[in-house]
Design a binder for these strands. Structure first.
Lengths: 266, 266
DNA sequence: CCATCTTTGTGCACGCGTTCACAAAGACAT
DNA sequence: ATGTCTTTGTGAACGCGTGCACAAAGATGG
């Protein structure tokens, strides 16, 4: 998956491990799908498969919530949907503001996954006066000046930052100053916030870089096994000394079948 | 931050822990910023602060890469930028395709963070014939039919899926069939892929749900402290012993305002 | 050349998360 | 009722990641 964790250090909430909390939405989605197909019950095995996790892990996760589930039968889908929703706080309405209505901000505003989960986009905010009033996803873009009143009037406690990196900290500070205590940050910056404020970060380029790392490793292992050994043996000092030598090493990519690729694409 | 990890189980790549790999892009960004300001060296303390992590952790992370750094001085910025870039595979060009050019796909196509990191958008692909040829972010949208040739001709090994959930698995299968071995998935679905293919997932609504969980907890702690203590006191054993008792027990749960949920749904 | 001071690199301990494996709980059939 | 069969809930072991704390390395000054 794709996220990092600029998170609370180690404060486990109630008794529920952070890792479990992060999986609850996953289970919820799978359960919702089952619910729509009117499936009455699921076993941990089935549900785990649908959510893409280990069944033992799933059972343990649920055990933190309590003993829902019947031995020999499985879990009642509807009941579990309700319990998880409640645990995640989705039974209530969460007004959110999106700040920074560029390409990404607009895409977020249009994203359907929010509304369907109890999140209501209370306002779209942008610093550019030219944007003010322009309708995006059915809502008029408001100017940053209105930020405070918007937060106050709507009781907003969750903010989404989709501004350029340079503006993010400033926007963050203003959000926090006016009462926002949870922030979802799409700007590629480390935000510093006071104690008690949660920040989660989504960084698109980081995800790609992680994939690139593994991709490189795959390519290297396959085609250049000896070269790889050499690289492993020769400590970084060597490799650094001659970047050219390295550039030549990762040429071979695996095709869909076993065909051995020729040279690297220029 | 914002991602999950539908990842390789436990196979640590080379000797570098997965957690470390995930932080390297963070360090790289901070270092790049320093580099642009022509700062020659940084201490682990300074860099750690800039990247938002613990300095001990940072030093340990770097120790996996090798012994770059001079005691009493710190790390050479330029050198470290190079080393990390190389380790992440960013010294080479990674052509990527983006499939599904809706709001999100278009936003991704326009996202500057890719190009600046060695990622090149080789093509934008959409299933809608009406989209074909339309320019997005300076590139003409191509139709799904061309998927295979695009991947082949460009040597694409990384694919980004930004389609609706329903189409994601199918797109994924086609990508994989034609040689893509790393996928960044924005569709809210669990993708199943063969061994050897890496999937990372970015799920916007999941991030919000996690924030909502903590937000709820914060609100609850404040207003319903005693109820919270009671819940903490009763160990799982109690609750497990009698599901009925439990159902009743969590009646007094912290709502934002203290509303008590009724009974369980049938 | 020696002393001092800074900063790295890492051994070690601890805690969280994952997984195995199984006993207990309940459904269902006889 | 009793027995069988399924599936949960969890105790226990293990491994990874984190953070402390310190020894070693090197710079710097005398």
């Amino acid at each position: 998956m794709a996220t990092g964790r600029t998170h609370r250090p180690a404060t486990r909430s109630r008794g529920i491990p952070e890792a479990t909390v992060a999986r609850l939405p996953l289970y919820l989605r799978a359960l919702t799908a089952l619910s729509e197909r009117s499936v009455p019950t699921v076993s941990s095995e089935e549900l785990a498969a649908a959510a893409g996790v280990n069944s033992a892990k799933l059972r343990k996760d649920f055990s933190y919530l309590g003993s829902y589930g019947t031995r020999g039968v499985g879990y009642d889908v509807e009941y579990l949907v309700y319990q998880i929703s409640r645990e995640l706080g989705l039974t209530q309405d969460w007004p959110v503001v999106i700040v920074g209505i560029g390409n990404l901000g607009a895409a977020l505003a249009n994203y359907g996954g929010f509304a369907s989960r109890g999140f209501r986009v209370a306002a779209l905010i942008d610093a550019d006066p030219a944007m003010a009033g322009k309708p995006v996803a059915g809502l008029p873009v408001r100017h940053t000046d209105e930020l405070e009143s918007i937060i106050r009037d709507n009781g907003v406690s969750i903010g989404v930052i989709a501004t350029p990196a340079g503006a993010a900290q400033q926007v963050c500070d203003r959000l926090v100053a006016h009462g926002v205590t949870s922030i979802l940050n799409f700007a590629p910056t480390v935000l510093s916030v006071p104690e008690g404020v949660d920040v989660r970060k989504v960084d698109l380029s980081i995800e790609l870089q992680i994939l690139a790392f593994h991709e490189q490793r795959k390519a290297g292992e396959e085609s250049a096994a000896p070269a790889d050994l050499a690289a492993a043996g020769a400590t970084a000092a060597d490799a650094a000394a001659s970047p050219a030598a390295r550039a030549g090493a990762d040429g071979g990519r695996k095709g869909p079948d076993g065909d051995v690729p020729a040279v690297m694409p220029a």
